[in-house]
Design a binder for these strands. Structure first.
Lengths: 212, 212
DNA sequence: TCGGAAATTTTCGTATTTGAAAATTTTCGT
DNA sequence: ACGAAAATTTTCAAATACGAAAATTTCCGA
């Protein structure tokens, strides 16, 4: 059991401090969030996010992780350098798991190009009851879902819910309040792609803040 | 896509703490390192690693990152829980008996909104040989692919091909010539979403305005 | 350009994290 | 079982991170 093999360390010498703050800021601005929005979504205070973005402090691990969740990106994306981010080809491996439990769904951000506009996720739908309206998703743009396994009910505000079985897909305006409910015994698994909002100014308000 | 939950992290702190400490310990022991070894390799003190492993504190982000490098693993490995790994394993119960190889790709356009900008397809890849360059796809925008079953090789002009297994996904600039080749014995099935270039006719009106 | 509101940064007291060294536990040869 | 060395945990003062609120800057409409 005690292995004698040592794993190779890709030694990069003393590298510059991780570009954590700059990346967080870029993701936040690209998705049209204010510090306040991100603070609410991540559970980290405005002051702390501001300081991290500006390199005034480097942040605790839990803090950075919460922020990544609030941004809906993988922690590895936060670490990436600008050069890496310019890649125009990104592969996401099945086992490269970063679970983002939201309380309603589990979602797993998949590979995405930082320069691009498509947001791929794998989501696991557990709930068999329709969530509170306040927890329904709204984000400007459109969304495609493909049911990998199980079945779901796709609810949209003011519409009759649609039942989607494994292999079915749907495309809809994600600006309409929507929610997924598991319609199979086992949790449903879906692959989802949504358009990423370019900038806050283009919309006039944060796409992630719901109106009561 | 991100949910719009008002608060992702409730004050009551119901979320399990990340299994950071346990994972670090597991990786360290599995690779046969002592705390002293890991301290030297990572640049983090013995005391700090000990406390993190035992959950006495949760560690700064830089600290955890250094430890991950010292262990030679990705930060995402540190976050992973056993449960996460299982959940991300895609089980395919669907039989492929209904597949009838007919050509290069079988192309099944999925539901898409006439006014939208996303193009979803299910494709069945039969060919095991790289098609003629003239038959490769080119279309401005970007594309996401998710492998439902089987495996493919994703070829892009001037780049090394990438192999994608079931459950893997990739996102790339579709303006570069590309093609899919089946890399599994059975035909591979993939779900693909690409951005659609707006037609002239569609320009000038909001693509997301829809009538009920 | 002005004024108010929104967004961001800074201040400051409290809480947590860090590493050297001391204390404790475990490992191992005899 | 014993003792010594190795491995790990704990102690503790200094350093750093945290959030609420205050201070400042930025953003827009009039």
């Amino acid at each position: 059991m005690p292995s004698t093999s040592r794993k190779q360390i890709p030694e990069d010498g003393q590298r510059d401090p991780l570009p954590v703050g700059a990346n967080i800021r870029r993701f936040r601005v690209e998705s049209g969030m204010t510090l306040k929005d991100l603070a609410e979504r991540s559970g980290v205070s405005i002051a702390t996010i501001s300081k991290i973005e500006n390199g005034k402090n480097s942040g605790g691990f839990e803090t950075i992780y919460k922020i990544a969740r609030g941004l809906g990106v993988l922690v590895t994306e936060i670490i990436k350098s600008e050069r890496d981010g310019r890649q125009n080809f990104v592969v996401h491996r099945r086992d490269d798991t970063d679970l983002h439990p939201t309380g309603i769904y589990d979602y797993f951000p998949q590979a995405f190009r930082q320069a691009g506009s498509l947001n791929p996720y794998v989501m696991v739908i557990h709930t068999h009851t329709v969530p509170d309206k306040r927890d329904w998703s709204v984000h400007s743009g459109e969304e495609v879902v493909f049911v990998i396994s199980g079945a779901i009910e796709l609810h949209r505000e003011g519409r009759a819910p649609a039942r989607l079985e494994a292999g079915d897909s749907a495309c809809f305006d994600s600006g309409i309040r929507h929610a997924f409910v598991c319609a199979s015994k086992a949790p449903a698994r879906i692959f989802s792609v949504s358009t990423r909002v370019a900038s806050r100014r283009a919309i006039g308000r944060s796409p992630f803040v719901q109106s009561p």
